[in-house]
Design a protein around this nucleic acid. Structure first.
Lengths: 147, 147
DNA sequence: AGAAATTTGTCCGTATGTATC
DNA sequence: AGATACATACGGACAAATTTC
């Protein structure tokens, strides 16, 4: 069977359909979207195509995905009356890259990184801890090895 | 050979190589990149993988593609403060508090936290990695689980 | 103007490795 | 540890835009 498409890519049509369902409440905010396999069956599309459509919604900020769980419809921040009694403490230190960070920065494990840690407290209660990592020196990248 | 993608995925390596060629002038600005079929032969990779690597460069604003024509290396200003074309990827996952985080949040070690990781890339190169931790208990984030 | 070749766009099916619950 | 979902990679197929002959 040939592939009747074009005019509009399949993954975009599916993304449009899912967006409608989210916006009209058919998929309530905060709830799980149907599983990938379910969407595959419903739209008669391959997993790759379904995943592509979900990626569209994710970039649009409409959904968020958790490994091993599924994809949620986001609740948009209503952001009610938040007090302004929060304080931020920041400090810096030098650390060495663990495996995960080394992969992200494309450097070897143990390379020097700058870690900046910001602790946000509100009413004395820690609300969030942010750790930002940057390369200490540029051009610390690993050369490409032969394939 | 099957498909081991230890360390850096293949499409990123290819993207790195192509980026080098663009930035060192081997592929002059405004000129066409080799066709996908050519790159497929050169890198001994499937077309899908080659296209994925080109997509990386396209999102970085290094190249532009036209249907039926090909992919061009963009002429872009050698401007000093190129603050554009940086992109942030965000993902969330659930982690357990280590000793340091447990102390900051005044919870017991091993307590559940939400980690939000934002990776900022400019021209495909990782510039910073920020990890923000919050307590799971509130309705801060989307994934309120019933279990 | 028309046909063929080239090139990118989309889609399918599959396989396997990786991460999380 | 098993299930689920995600990430990477392969190969093949057809559609559509462009170029070339």
């Amino acid at each position: 069977m040939p592939t009747p498409h074009y005019g509009q890519p399949r993954y975009r049509s599916i993304a449009d359909e899912l967006r409608k369902r989210i916006q009209n409440g058919s998929i309530p905010p905060g709830s799980l979207l149907p599983a990938e396999s379910t969407l595959t069956a419903e739209f008669q599309a391959s997993r790759g195509t379904v995943r592509q459509s979900i990626a569209v919604l994710r970039e649009a900020g409409l959904v968020a995905t958790e490994h091993g769980r599924g994809t949620y419809a986001c609740l948009r921040p209503a952001n009610g009356g938040s007090e302004e009694s929060s304080k931020t403490e920041t400090r810096q230190r030098q650390v060495t890259a663990d495996a995960a960070l080394a992969a992200l920065f494309s450097v070897r494990e143990g390379a020097a990184l700058i870690e900046e840690e910001s602790v946000v407290r509100r009413d004395g209660v820690t609300e969030s801890v942010a750790r930002t990592y940057r390369l200490l020196r540029k051009e610390e990248c690993i050369g490409n090895r032969d394939r």
